[in-house]
Nucleic acid binder design. Structure first.
Lengths: 128, 128
DNA sequence: CTTTATCTACTACCTGGGTAGTATTACCGC
DNA sequence: GCGGTAATACTACCCAGGTAGTAGATAAAG
């Protein structure tokens, strides 16, 4: 079951995960660089964060020379899903339609996006 | 601009807000009762939370006898929107279609819900 | 071999959510 | 008036995210 509580990732943690998902793996330096390379965040901040994230089971590391190479321990799908579901449940009692309704009425949605959605739903309806 | 940072509400805070949105206002006792009345949460927990929330600008209170009557200081729409947008931006770079795609492919969606969505989009397309 | 750059480890601090006990105040019934 | 009750205020924790400095180890450069 792996109740990893995969929702509730902070902004920074998510950014880090995204880097790792994209690259497959990466050292602290890699991640640091990918996130703007020091202008915003200290190197040690990334290092600390990665260590904390490993303790929480979000990433794993192997040793390469004197560097740690981190790689994701949870898939992007699981996280995305966990967070989406969490929001959906908290705000819309699980109703996808309610969420979409809300987004459609409070957001600017381009005609292209609407068409894309239409197609998605048609597709889904067919295969269900 | 009112940078109230209306996203990032904790679970309990959201529950409390929901009670207040529904009732219009309420005392600590009202909220406490609405949330199960002590089986889960201590009375003082709600009181503390409401005080903290007032400090953050989420609710306001007026005095009625010796009781505080709290009422929402932010609308449910603003919060819902703030949180949805936050997630949308963090996970899907703002693409509504991507979010829906994800939800459609990872969730069970009933045929009824699909039809509802279809209708929503058609409606929206017309009025845009 | 010594200096320097590069790693990780450790520690510390701040913020905010969550939880609740204890203290104090004030009203209400007798 | 007095005791109980119900209300807020205060204080204190714990946890997790975020941020970063400092220390210690080690490899690379000279």
């Amino acid at each position: 079951m792996s109740k990893t509580k995969v929702h509730r990732l902070g902004d920074l943690q998510l950014k880090i995960m995204k880097v790792l998902w994209e690259r497959g793996d990466g050292t602290v330096a890699d991640v640091h660089l990918a996130l703007g390379g020091g202008r915003d965040l200290a190197y040690t901040t990334i290092a600390t964060m990665l260590r904390k994230m490993e303790a929480r089971g979000l990433v794993r590391h192997r040793v390469d020379g004197r560097s740690f190479v981190y790689r994701p321990a949870v898939g992007s799908d699981a996280v995305t899903r966990g967070m989406s579901d969490h929001l959906l449940d908290r705000l819309f009692e699980g109703s996808l339609a309610d969420l979409v309704t809300h987004l459609l009425t409070t957001r600017e949605v381009s005609r292209e996006e609407l068409s894309r959605l239409e197609q998605l739903i048609a597709e889904r309806k067919k295969s269900a």
